[in-house]
Design a protein around this nucleic acid. Sequence first.
DNA 1: CAGATTGTTCATAAAATAATGAACGATCTG
DNA 2: CAGATCGTTCATTATTTTATGAACAATCTG
Lengths: 160, 160
Amino acid sequence: MAAALSELEKEVVNIFVRIAGLLSLPRSVGELYGVLFISPEPMCIDDLMRKLKISKGSTSQGLKILRSFGAVNPVYVAGDRRDFFTAEAELRKIVAGFVNEQIRPHLNNGKERMMRIESLLIEETPDRKEFIAERMERLQGWQKRANALLPFALNFIKPE
Amino acid sequence: MAAALSELEKEVVNIFVRIAGLLSLPRSVGELYGVLFISPEPMCIDDLMRKLKISKGSTSQGLKILRSFGAVNPVYVAGDRRDFFTAEAELRKIVAGFVNEQIRPHLNNGKERMMRIESLLIEETPDRKEFIAERMERLQGWQKRANALLPFALNFIKPE
DNA sequence: CAGATTGTTCATAAAATAATGAACGATCTG
DNA sequence: CAGATCGTTCATTATTTTATGAACAATCTG
């Protein structure tokens, strides 16, 4: 039980490790999701540690991150005290969770910052002020578009 | 000339440093773009180094990255041997460049990998095979959606 | 051409990020 | 309740990423 990763498993894990990289998530998070994604049965921390040869700490924290945006579902296994997990396979749920947890906070922070800049603008010399004001408007435009695109993108990912 | 960053400049730079983080780009790249973004005049490496108090190496490499996806435009300044730059302010150009340079390669790699997995699938036991096949199909579905969303998102960002 | 100036590269240093594993608290088991 | 089992946390270590700056090549200047 809990043999090393098969060739196929390695490939799948590799895919998710790459995705994790794109999303600035630790490698181990990608590994964990990958293994769960191709596992027909739910797995517990111990299974995952052994399979991936990573530490208990990494495993626990990785699962915590995955849970935080709903990429992983806790599963009750009768007669076993340990916590088991399966991969959430509905893309929309994962993306929505990820956006809410990891993206939205940053966007909001940007808004506040913009207000502050507006107030600082007053102290500039007239010529610079004009230019900077133009840039600020542009920046706000970008922000609006990003904010508009987000819900659209989420909707684009249709439910199954 | 080339005084330290004003309060306003700091705020703007800060915004772009955050964006750089989201895109997994070095902090210095965000700083460079930020300073250029609010500068009415084109700037050369020396201006940027002094303004941001970063090394020449970082500045040169940072500009290289920014040029690689068209976030920065070389500008000819009469009577000066040095290279000057302004920030590209048209979002669409930047995003398109970024996607082509930093995202597309990864997506393609994913396709190849998928093929390889298909071939490995043969060696699985029947019951596992069924499950894994289902997952692979799902994964391919995700890939298709991502590929479809990308050009759409680009188009969403309307010119001017 | 000799000396300056400018931008790039790359080995090294510094900083940031992730992984490890021992310590701990919580829960179960007999 | 005493011991065992689990999962989490966090100080430390390892790894990866980024920044530095000296060396260099290319170009200009008189």
